[in-house]
Design a binder for these strands. Structure first.
Lengths: 214, 214
DNA sequence: GTCTATAGGGGGATAGAC
DNA sequence: GTCTATCCCCCTATAGAC
């Protein structure tokens, strides 16, 4: 594990600490002492703390988004005549994210997932820009796919439901708080099971009858 | 607006800045200059930054949770012989939170709501303790109510679905990011409409058939 | 209760030796 | 590429005058 080069050690430690404490609360000194490297190495390899934050995200986000697009391409290739069922699109969106947590090559556990959850909640301008750059294209592809598979939904209803779906996904990548309420009866290590449950929760909400004024 | 006393001015400014930038990134100097009060006033009135954070939350959370319990009591009083429909319980849980944003006595808009979203994502120990103290009893009450109204659901399925529901609620209190994808077609000021849409999204997921191994 | 002043520490970033 | 040393800033908290 100490065979990694300095740049990788910094990324690994920064990822872990950002996920645990947040960006502002994690100092460059925290990171370098955790990584057993020199303080100046961060500025040498990454120029600034902001650019380090970006690199930490990009390293994980890019492969996940590639896999999402690959799965969506596959689904659309199978359904050339009619739009695919929303359930399949939901699965293509959430599965690569949840699976990334249990990739044995990463050894990340909940760390990666809390990092994404935190990004969703950050409101600083730089975070917004970063998010747009890393996620914009994928979001647009999936919105188009969902729109075609839910053609009868009124536009406002459609976007609200997509937004609620993103909420489920963003919040549930961190499964720690679930243990606080479930006294350990939920197996948080069974990723494929979590994916199934999440798809089965989201799909009926997406495909429900239109919301009427009550 | 400048008629408020020092303590209230500090709470108002702290709430606004915590929501916008997070706890760690908001300094006591930011708060006192926004509030037009002296730096030392924070330590005089609140002792420390941590206790200020707690007070900011408690001021909003306590009335919201009281209203949630009141609505749940009301629902259960109407349904003494059979458990209420999950839909009614969902509404009792989400409506007070979403309505708090548009309370004209508070003039908070999205600020209050982003604050709650951020609390959900904070992982520091002190936040966990605070959350437990302010939310523990309410969560237990609602879990019991949901359990009775969903008696056929396997236990793990039940808790996962409750967790997904919390995700929708926590994420969707900040409606800013919705505008990024919906090009303004969603009316984020119509609180009762948002509540209806959210209840209609969550309920089918809660009441769906059990998740089977696929 | 509110102020000024300051203690005492930690932060990001960089210069320059090796 | 990696180190030490340091600049200069902002931070929380408190002491003590008013």
């Amino acid at each position: 594990m100490d065979l990694a080069d300095t740049k990788t050690k910094i990324l690994d430690s920064a990822e872990k600490l950002f996920a645990a404490k947040g960006f502002a609360a994690t100092s460059l000194r925290n990171i370098t002492s955790e990584a057993n490297v020199n303080l100046a190495a961060i500025n040498y390899h990454f120029d600034s703390k902001d650019k380090l934050i970006y690199e930490v995200f990009a390293r994980r986000m890019i492969p996940i988004n590639k896999e999402r697009i690959r799965l969506l391409d596959e689904i659309e290739a199978k359904n050339v005549d009619q739009p695919p069922h929303p359930k399949e699109i939901v699965r293509a969106l959430v599965a690569p994210l949840l699976r990334a947590a249990n990739n044995p090559d990463l050894y990340l556990g909940d760390i990666l997932l809390r990092l994404f959850a935190r990004l969703h909640i950050e409101s600083e301008e730089k975070m917004r820009e970063m998010f747009k750059g890393l996620m914009g294209a994928v979001i647009q592809r999936f919105i188009q796919a969902f729109r075609k598979s839910l053609p009868d939904l009124e536009e406002a209803d459609f976007f609200w439901r997509v937004y609620f779906m993103i909420g489920v996904m963003a919040h549930s990548v961190d499964t720690q708080k679930l243990n606080l309420i479930s006294h350990g009866c939920c197996d948080t290590s069974d990723v494929e099971g979590i994916i199934d449950r999440m798809v089965n929760f989201i799909t009926p909400g997406l495909t429900a009858p239109a919301t009427k004024k009550e």
